[in-house]
Design a protein around this nucleic acid. Structure first.
Ligand SMILES: [Mn+2]
Ligand SMILES: [Mn+2]
Ligand SMILES: [Mn+2]
Ligand SMILES: [Mn+2]
Lengths: 145, 145
DNA sequence: CACAGAATGTAGCGTTGGCTACACTTTCGC
DNA sequence: GCGAAAGTGTAGCCAACGCTACATTCTGTG
């Protein structure tokens, strides 16, 4: 017994591949979520604010915002702040809801608040639809108890 | 109410920063875990096997193995397969245990098996010590019911 | 209104982690 | 024991995402 480790090769390759894709989407998700939060909180999302909150240089933030624009998630004119396209808004909505659900589940499992917030920042990007649905069910049942 | 979104700026920057570090460690963790699994299952871990299981080209795998060696996690001589240093073995042990715990928790929450395995592949790298401890407690209590 | 300081943008660099193409070794089958 | 197939390694390319340094634009204060 003990070692049922090692799934079949193609299965394992598919899992790792999907995890890689999820990872590469993560940064954009965080940017879009943050931009949406800033817009909602103050009416504007400026590159420098974004950079400070993400803990990167403003040059890095501006470059990434450029990629968001290229992908149709954001718009911006020079020196005018960043806004989201409808596509970007839609993504932001999904990402924010997922983020909150992940935090809620972690807290429900007894994870301390700040640790939950911390780990959720990374975990959220790897929670697929089936897992998300299970999380929602878990919270609902447990909340009703 | 509704918007207690937006944590304090330094807090948020710290969270994102830690998530970035966790991410950059993720690939090495997966390699080390896989190498350990292969060694245990068959006595050898060959670059081509590693590459196939990760779903990347053998050239990519070899380059990454080079970084593992540089960091003191692995050893290899040309054409002789890859082995782990004691440091690498220790890391593999922790990573494997964490991986299994994450899968177990997801399953306990009602996530279907394959979705759990899939999402755990990414989630595991973002589960800190406090969260890990909470997961273990949760499983123990729930198992005893 | 000028100009100092802040914000924004650009240029150029480095590492990571993908890839393909090609060269070299090892291993196997005959 | 030879030669083909498989495995291994190297070289060179690319994109993403970090950074610093510098140039440009905006803004607000005197
Ligand atoms: Mn995040
Ligand atoms: Mn988030
Ligand atoms: Mn993993
Ligand atoms: Mn794993």
């Amino acid at each position: 017994m003990a070692s049922d480790t090692l799934p079949a090769e193609p299965t394992q390759a598919r899992r790792f591949g999907k995890a890689r894709s999820a990872q590469s989407a993560a940064l954009h998700e965080d940017y879009v979520e943050l931009i949406s939060d800033l817009l909602e909180a103050g009416g504007e999302a400026r590159p420098t604010d974004i950079a400070r909150r993400l803990g990167v240089s403003h040059a890095t933030a501006i470059k990434t915002i450029g990629r968001l624009k290229r992908e149709g998630l954001a718009i911006s004119k020079p020196y005018r702040g960043v806004f989201l396209t409808p596509l970007g808004e839609a993504l932001a909505g999904r990402v924010r809801a997922r983020h909150r659900l992940v935090v809620a589940v972690l807290c429900a499992l007894g994870v301390p608040r700040e640790a939950a917030e911390q780990d959720a920042e990374g975990i959220e990007h790897h929670v697929g639809d089936a897992t998300l649905a299970a999380f929602a069910r878990f919270l609902k049942e447990r909340g009703g108890a």
